[in-house]
């Protein structure tokens, strides 16, 4: 199992749109390695692409940290996007669908949140933004939650 960590854990730069291609490939391979289903892989890679583009466009670039996480028998992947950009003043507004301060369809943050199992964001204006997402493999979907 420590062998997979070596191939999963990584720090990847987010400096150009070409970095996004490499980043998507790494996340895809890592998720496949940990036993994510094709749909779960696709969701996580898409979320990663959205968040990395946010880091690039709004944060002025930064980096992605990829880590393997374990909880009991469940294998997961934690992605941490960080930048030293201007930060987000109104987080609630940024997470709402349709809000966009740049390119895209305004689905970036809110959309990415729906594609992963856990999502957290920490942003300080003038200091930067850190977005952390986690998704799990080999775990059947939980019974219905009280989400509307």
């Amino acid at each position: 199992m420590s062998g997979t960590a070596a191939r999963v854990d990584a720090r990847l730069p987010i400096r150009s749109d070409r970095d996004l291609v490499w980043l998507r490939q790494h996340v895809r391979q890592a998720a496949a390695l940990l036993g994510f289903s094709l749909v779960e892989q696709t969701k996580l890679v898409t979320a990663a692409s959205e968040l990395a583009r946010n880091t690039l466009v709004h944060g002025g670039g930064g980096e992605l940290r990829v880590e393997q996480v374990t909880e009991g028998a469940a294998q997961g992947l934690r992605l941490t996007f960080s930048d030293q950009g201007p930060g987000i003043a109104d987080l609630e507004q940024a997470l709402r669908d349709g809000f966009t301060s740049g390119e895209g369809l305004g689905m970036g943050l809110g959309g990415a949140r729906r594609l992963v199992h856990a999502f957290s964001i920490d942003s300080t204006p003038g200091v930067g933004t850190v977005v952390t997402v986690t998704s799990w493999a080999a775990r059947p979907p939980r019974p219905r939650e009280g989400r509307s």
Binding site: P141, R142, P143
Partner: peptide
């Protein structure tokens, strides 16, 4: 139909 089943049905 719960969440889990709906997901499987969709796929």
């Amino acid at each position: 139909l719960d969440s889990a089943r709906s997901q499987v049905v969709m796929e």
